[in-house]
Amino acid sequence: MTAPATTSTTASTTAPTPVRRRRRDWRSRWHLAAAGLLTLAFVSPIYLTIVNAFKSQDQIVADPSAPPAPPTLHNLGDALARPDRIIQIGLTNSAVTVAASVLLVIPLGAAFSFWLSRRSARLRRIVLAAFAAGLMIPPAVILLPTIRILTLLHLDHTYAGLILSNVGGGYLSFAVFVYSGFLRAVPEEIVEAAALDGAGTLRIWWTIIMPLLRPATATVAIFLSLWIWNDFMNPQFILGPLRGQTITTGLYLSLGQYTTNYAQLFGVMFLAAVIPVAGYLALQKQFIAGLTTGASK
């Protein structure tokens, strides 16, 4: 008679009570609601940019969150027809700056990471700790020394100086960290077999390592392209408002001192976001593969 009572008592204590179930349900609902509100906070600026890019000035002032009814393409046409050519000049300069910076950072970061992976563990820790400073120090802290160095090199107020500052800043540190983590998953036997076949270090890096780093390269390219494309501080201070402009500084110049044409401004913002979104859609497969591979190894 005692054994069944013990069994029933144990089962009643281990089984979840209705009160506990209701608490878990409420917690899951609160978590879902919090996730929904957080997602809405991130998506709302994108929604406002898209809907207001196809609305007139009066519609935007009346209700910025309402959908365009009816939609109009005048904002995009007015943005492209500006006499200062903010869209044409800004998109061209931003695209050239991003392409040149990324094409320099990727081979430098990959080559240095491959060289670092062949060194001792102690040296790797010291070097990566030094590169971590490039990620932890705010860009505004090193902006003035960067401008002074570019002035000594006669590269201030030039796009070459802007590209050089991108290469020597925290972007290279980010590339080194990504490539260094990814290279840990590359078997050492591949490099040793290529060396035994007579391949040099440069050939091993270019013909064997770089194809294996394709997902990591896509991840680095997407992140760096977005960061450099959206950068405002470096173009504003290194180029100067009268020497050149990127699309971000062009957006700043399109703001009026006393009044602002919001319809045209949203048109400029919409056109400025087309190229980054198209680039991400083109590389999203490699980008996701790079993130999942780095997370699983």
Rank of each mutant, 00 (worst) to 15 (best):
A3E: 12
T7C: 11
P18E: 05
P18C: 06
R20Q: 15
L32I: 09
G36S: 08
L40E: 02
A41R: 12
S44R: 07
L48A: 03
I50T: 11
V51T: 11
V51H: 03
Q57D: 04
Q57F: 07
S65Y: 10
A66E: 04
P70F: 00
P70Q: 04
T72F: 01
G77K: 10
A79W: 07
D84S: 04
I87D: 09
G90L: 01
T92Y: 03
A95M: 14
V105P: 06
V105M: 08
L108E: 11
S113M: 04
S113Q: 09
S117N: 14
R122W: 14
R125N: 12
A129N: 14
A132E: 01
A133E: 07
M136Y: 12
I137R: 04
P139A: 12
L144V: 15
P145A: 06
L152Q: 15
L153R: 11
A160D: 13
L162P: 00
N166M: 03
G169M: 10
G169W: 05
F174V: 12
A175D: 11
A175H: 05
F177L: 02
S180P: 00
V186P: 01
E189S: 15
A195G: 13
G198W: 07
A199Q: 13
W206P: 00
W206C: 10
I208D: 04
I208E: 13
L212Y: 02
A218K: 05
A218H: 09
V220S: 00
A221H: 05
D231K: 03
M233C: 09
P235Q: 09
P235A: 09
Q236A: 03
I238Y: 08
I238S: 03
R243Y: 12
I247R: 02
L255W: 00
Q257R: 13
Y258W: 08
Y262W: 14
A263K: 02
L265E: 08
F266V: 09
G267K: 00
M269V: 11
F270W: 01
V274P: 06
V274M: 09
A278D: 03
L281Y: 08
Q284I: 01
Q286I: 09
A289Y: 01
T293G: 15
T293A: 14
G294F: 07
A295E: 09
K297D: 12
